[in-house]
Simulated assay, not measured.
Amino acid sequence: MAWVETLINGALLGGLYGLLGIGLALVFGVMRVVNIAHGEFMVLSAFFSVFLVGMFPSIHPLLLLIPVVATSFVVGWLYQMLIVNRVARQPDPLAPLLLTFGISIILRNLMVELFGADVRSVQLGELSRASLELLGLNIGIMPLLTLLLAVLLFLTLQWILKRTTFGRVIRATADRRDIVRLFGIKPDRVYNYVMGLSLALGAIGGVLLAVRSSFTPFSGAERLLIAFEVVVLGGIGSFWGALVGGIALGMAQLAGLKFDPNAGLLYAHLLFFIMLLIRPAGIVSNRT
Score class of each variant (00 low, 15 high):
I170V: 15
I170M: 10
R171I: 08
R171D: 02
R171L: 14
R171M: 09
R171K: 14
A172P: 05
A174N: 11
D175F: 08
D175I: 13
R176L: 09
R176Y: 08
R177K: 15
R177N: 12
R177V: 00
D178H: 03
D178P: 01
R181K: 10
L182S: 13
L182P: 00
F183H: 14
F183V: 15
F183M: 15
I185Y: 01
K186M: 11
K186I: 07
K186F: 05
K186C: 13
P187D: 10
P187K: 14
D188Y: 04
D188P: 05
R189M: 06
R189V: 11
R189H: 08
V190Y: 00
V190I: 11
Y191M: 14
Y191A: 15
N192T: 13
Y193P: 04
V194N: 01
V194M: 10
G196T: 13
L197Y: 03
L197R: 06
L199S: 02
L199I: 07
A200T: 15
L201E: 02
L201I: 13
G202N: 08
A203E: 00
A203S: 02
A203Q: 09
I204K: 03
I204A: 10
I204H: 01
G205P: 12
G205D: 05
G205N: 07
G205Y: 03
G206W: 01
G206F: 04
G206Y: 01
